[in-house]
Amino acid sequence: MNVFRLAGDMSHLLAIIILLLKIWKTRSCAGISGRSQLLFALTYTARYLDLVTNWVSLYNTVMKVFFIATSYATIYLMYLKFKATYDSNHDTFRVEFLLLPVTILALVLNHEFSFMEILWTFSIYLEAVAILPQLFMVSKTGEAESITSHYLFALGSYRLLYIFNWIWRYYTEEYYDLIAIIAGVVQTVLYCDFFYLYFTKVLKGKKLQLPA
């Protein structure tokens, strides 16, 4: 554990809390992509099945349980409790275009051809692109509420902080995991355009609005 990894995890935690609070306080999930949330739930389920086979630390276990539980809680709020506020006609990204290549890639490019390892690899690749339906939704409607922007900023920062953690681990432990690193870089790059808009608009008190 180093400061970058901890900051990354805290940023990830914060993103989830912001999202849940936004939905709960406003009693609405307007502007949030249910498809991205479904992909995140699939990501955490596939990755954290190792809860039952592999003990790392109490910290890891608590975080894994939290990520799995909150991802399903989000889906429950979006698709059941506040279903009437879900903006489904703007949430039209075809997730099979992500799931199919990610599945094939996981079967071909992995550390070991075993059940748990392929699930882990699948989750790493899927997480990298899982935000695309959300970003697609923002670009389709041309805007995002400030709170949604803060959520996206915290979620995007998390993998960026992990990249610093991997650099740190490479120099201090000689540890590196190429699959996680490359997927993490792709994941972070997908947020670059959003980061730019966040700094130039949202932080100056303006709404995130894309030029027509």
Partner: peptide
């Protein structure tokens, strides 16, 4: 055998 690779990150 499930896997021999150990992942200690989240």
């Amino acid at each position: 055998r499930f896997t021999s690779v150990l992942h200690d990150e989240l």
